[in-house]
């Protein structure tokens, strides 16, 4: 298979980027999208050019590093899959494929297709945890947790922090990511003591990072490779409201 790639090239965070056309020849349908880029990069290197930089690591859809917008879709055309799990059989031979980085003010581009998503880390640092020091834990089976609650908490915890929700959102909102963490810990008994404080701290940090605001279009849910749903945003909305009211009226 042969393709024309329209790839975003940008020298560094301070430079202006632009699209560059590269051709990919002799691609096999069972190659992954990133393997196709490997092949292209090797050819570019051998020809004396500079290969395209992109984030990737585990290549099995769990680390959350890969982050391309392929033909206008974060993580490309496959449902519930990361960029590394997109295979070339999903494209038409001869197609022109547009490849862009995740774009948001809170995710500045560092180079080519590499975006800085450390804003997510800072949101977690603000409150996305249970404050339990090593050694303080009670016996694991001391607090039973219903199977259904555990399963739902897992559904929220399945987030891989890739940022596709932000990338797909027309408003660059991070609310699916933040909602998933607030819901994950908020559902479990271990997360209760800090539940209100967590919601307030994480939302405040999210706002400070310069993400946009949710307009309930649910594009985030449509691209999430782990099927995290917008019910998590509703959970966050509820928790934040309750936490704020509680703080206002009880101090």
């Amino acid at each position: 298979m042969n393709f024309t790639l329209k790839i975003w090239r940008q020298k560094d965070a301070n430079s202006v980027g632009r699209f560059v056309e590269v051709s990919a020849r002799g691609i096999r349908p069972e190659m992954s999208f990133l393997e196709m880029l490997d092949v292209v990069n090797d050819e570019v290197t051998q020809a004396g050019g500079e290969p395209v930089a992109f984030d990737h690591d585990c290549r099995e859809g769990i680390c959350g590093a890969c982050s391309l917008v392929i033909n206008g879709e974060p993580h490309g055309p496959n449902e519930k899959a990361t960029t590394c799990q997109v295979y070339m059989r999903s494209f038409r031979d001869g197609e022109t494929i547009t490849v862009e980085p995740f774009r948001a003010r809170a995710f500045p581009v560092l180079k080519d297709l590499v975006a800085d998503r450390s804003a997510f880390d800072r949101i977690i640092q603000a409150g996305g945890f249970v404050s339990v020091n090593t050694g303080q834990a009670p016996e694991a089976n001391a607090a039973p947790i219903g199977k259904e609650v555990a399963e739902k908490a897992f559904d929220s915890a399945a987030c891989i922090g890739c940022g596709a929700c932000v990338a797909a959102c027309k408003n660059s909102s991070a609310m699916l990511f933040v909602g998933a963490k607030i819901a994950h810990l908020g559902r479990l008994p271990q997360g209760q003591p800090e539940r209100a404080q967590r919601a307030r701290a994480m939302v405040a940090r999210m706002d400070a990072e310069g993400f946009g605001n949710c307009t309930n279009q649910y594009e985030c849910q449509a691209v999430c490779p782990k099927g995290v749903t917008v019910a998590n945003i509703a959970w966050m909305n509820r928790d934040y409201l309750a936490a704020s009211l509680k703080k206002i009226f009880t101090g």
Binding site: G17, N71, T98, E100, R105, S172, S173, G212
Partner: peptide
């Protein structure tokens, strides 16, 4: 403001 550099294409 949350996306100063727009996508050339966002489906």
């Amino acid at each position: 403001r949350a996306r100063p550099q727009p996508y050339v294409r966002l489906k």
